[in-house]
Amino acid sequence: MTEPTASPFVALLCAVNVGGTGRLPMSDLRDLCASVGFGAVRTYIASGNVVFTARLGADGARTVLEDALREYAGKPVGALIRTPGELARVRDANPFAGAVPSRVGVTFLDAPPETDTAERAAGATGEQIALGAREIYVHYPDGMGRSRLRLPPSAGRATTRNMNTVTRLAALAAEAS
């Protein structure tokens, strides 16, 4: 029986290094990923983005990573896992491709967003919302930091990255393939 080959993945951690909470130095994240057997580990900016290879499927990699993060942090830390192809599709499906990339946010979800997500959002003042496969795209014409938009809570894990980050992670993931 042959051992499975390592596949590349991107992990997007939830609530890491946001607003002074959830501090996780990226060097610690790289070390943690290596310690659980992930290979070719690379992090990107200090918001909990890590590209790696694993001999597990996406669900297995998420479980191993979340277990290690729980032990490290002393509390649950959620992670969303995407393959290089999935991340490239998120980038390519951007419905606001003409907008400034730093003003387009992608909220990654465990499951497809509910069809009434845009209608249930609160505090919108010009933001545009579009639904993806397991993502919610938001164009923030005045910037994310000024927005009062609140998306309805998701049933599972959720974390947001701007389109600049999504594009860079897609490129790093493609290099790992």
Rank of each mutant, 00 (worst) to 15 (best):
A6V: 06
A6L: 11
A6S: 15
A6R: 09
A6Y: 04
A6C: 07
A6I: 03
S7D: 13
S7W: 14
S7H: 14
S7F: 14
P8W: 05
P8G: 08
P8R: 10
F9N: 08
F9G: 10
F9Y: 14
V10I: 11
V10Q: 00
V10F: 00
V10C: 02
V10N: 00
V10G: 01
V10R: 00
V10L: 06
A11C: 05
L12R: 02
L12N: 04
L12V: 06
L12S: 08
L12D: 04
L12W: 03
L13N: 15
L13D: 13
L13M: 11
L13F: 06
L13I: 11
L13W: 09
L13K: 15
C14T: 08
C14M: 14
C14V: 15
C14H: 10
C14P: 02
A15P: 03
A15Y: 14
A15W: 09
A15N: 14
A15M: 05
A15V: 12
A15R: 09
V16T: 06
V16R: 06
V16H: 01
V16A: 03
V16K: 01
N17M: 01
N17P: 00
N17I: 00
N17C: 00
N17Y: 01
V18M: 08
V18C: 08
V18A: 12
V18S: 13
V18R: 07
V18E: 12
G19V: 02
G19L: 03
G19R: 13
G20L: 04
G20F: 01
G20P: 01
T21Y: 15
T21P: 14
T21G: 13
G22K: 10
G22R: 09
G22C: 07
G22E: 12
R23G: 02
R23K: 07
R23I: 11
R23E: 01
L24C: 04
L24D: 04
L24F: 11
P25A: 03
P25S: 01
P25D: 00
M26A: 02
M26P: 03
M26R: 02
M26W: 01
S27H: 13
S27Y: 02
S27G: 04
S27Q: 12
S27E: 08
S27A: 13
S27V: 08
D28G: 01
D28Q: 07
D28A: 12
L29W: 04
L29K: 03
L29C: 05
L29F: 02
R30A: 14
R30V: 07
R30P: 06
R30D: 08
D31H: 15
D31C: 13
D31A: 15
D31N: 09
D31R: 15
D31P: 06
L32N: 09
L32R: 05
L32Y: 12
C33H: 03
C33D: 05
C33G: 06
C33P: 02
A34V: 10
A34T: 09
A34P: 15
A34L: 15
A34H: 14
A34R: 13
A34G: 11
S35G: 08
S35P: 01
S35Y: 01
S35E: 07
S35H: 04
V36F: 08
V36T: 07
V36Y: 12
V36M: 11
V36N: 15
G37I: 15
G37L: 12
G37E: 12
G37R: 15
G37T: 14
G37D: 11
F38L: 09
F38M: 07
F38W: 13
F38A: 12
F38Q: 11
F38G: 09
G39K: 03
G39E: 14
G39C: 05
